[in-house]
Design a binder for these strands. Structure first.
Lengths: 113, 113
DNA sequence: AAGGGTAACTTGCTATGCAAGGTACAGTAG
DNA sequence: CTACTGTACCTTGCATAGCAAGTTACCCTT
C-alpha cells in the first residue's frame, strides 16, 4: 500500500468529472484533453482516456466531429451533448457533497464553512 | 454509465482516507466504522471494509486489539499506528491538492481562495 | 522511398469494490 | 440441552476500470 497508489485511486474518482468539465468550455481532441488535465496536475494517460471517451460516447454524454489537421492525421473533436451537460451538473453536485462528507469526517468539530 | 456508478467511483478514492480518519480519533471495530461512515453519508459495506482493513494492516498502517464484548462475539478494535498516522497526514494533503486541482479545472476563472 | 511526428485505438494485466455466502460466539426461549 | 437469534469477523467470485505497452494510420520532409 503505497501513497502513490492511493493518490491514484483518489484521482480515478474524479476523472469523468474532469474530462467532461474540460470539454465543456470548448471542444477538444484527446491530446488537448490530456494536456489540459496535465496542466492542472491531474495525471491521465492515453490508455485511460480513450476507453473512457468511448464509454462517455456510448452513454450519449459526448459526441464528436472529425476535423482535418494542418499537419498530421485528422482529429476527433469531442463535444458535450445536452445530456452530458446535465450529467456534468449532477456530477459537480455529487463532488461537492462528497467533499462536504469528507470534511465532516476529518474535521468533525469545526463549524467553519 | 450511470450517475450512481460514477458517484461510487468517486467514493472509492477517499475510502482509505475516511477509514484511517475514522479510527484516528478513537479505536473502533468494523461495525462502528461502518456506522460512522454511514452517518456521514459515505456508503461502505462489509465486503469492502474487511479486505481494506486487512490491506491497511499488512501495510503496517493500523493494528488491532481483541476485546471481549458484553454480549456477542469479541471485537477487533483497530488503532492507527505511528506510520498510519503519518500516512493519514499525507493522504489529507493529497486530498486537498486534488480538490484544488478539480476546482481549478471546473472554475478556471475564479480567483477566490 | 524512408523516416519522423502526430493522432487514434487495442490488448492484457492488475487492483479493488461489492454482493453473497460462511464461520463462530453468546445469550435466550423452549 | 437444543434451537434460535443477533452480532461480529472473514472469504469467494465477479465485474469494472485504470494503465503500460503495443498497433495502425495519416501527413510532411528529406
Amino acid at each position: 500500500m503505497k501513497l502513490d497508489n492511493t493518490k491514484a485511486q483518489m484521482r480515478k474518482g474524479v476523472l469523468e468529472l474532469c474530462i467532461l468539465s474540460s470539454i465543456s468550455k470548448e471542444r477538444k481532441y484527446a491530446t488537448e484533453i490530456l494536456n489540459h488535465l496535465k496542466s492542472a496536475e491531474l495525471i491521465v494517460v492515453e490508455g485511460t482516456l480513450y476507453p473512457l471517451l468511448a464509454r462517455l460516447r456510448s452513454a450519449g454524454l459526448v459526441s464528436y466531429e472529425w476535423e482535418e489537421s494542418i499537419s498530421g492525421p485528422p482529429r476527433k473533436y469531442y463535444i458535450l451533448t445536452k445530456k452530458g451537460s446535465l450529467f456534468l451538473e449532477e456530477l459537480t453536485r455529487s463532488w461537492n457533497e462528497l467533499h462536504k462528507s469528507v470534511k465532516n469526517l476529518t474535521h468533525p468539530k469545526s463549524n467553519k464553512s
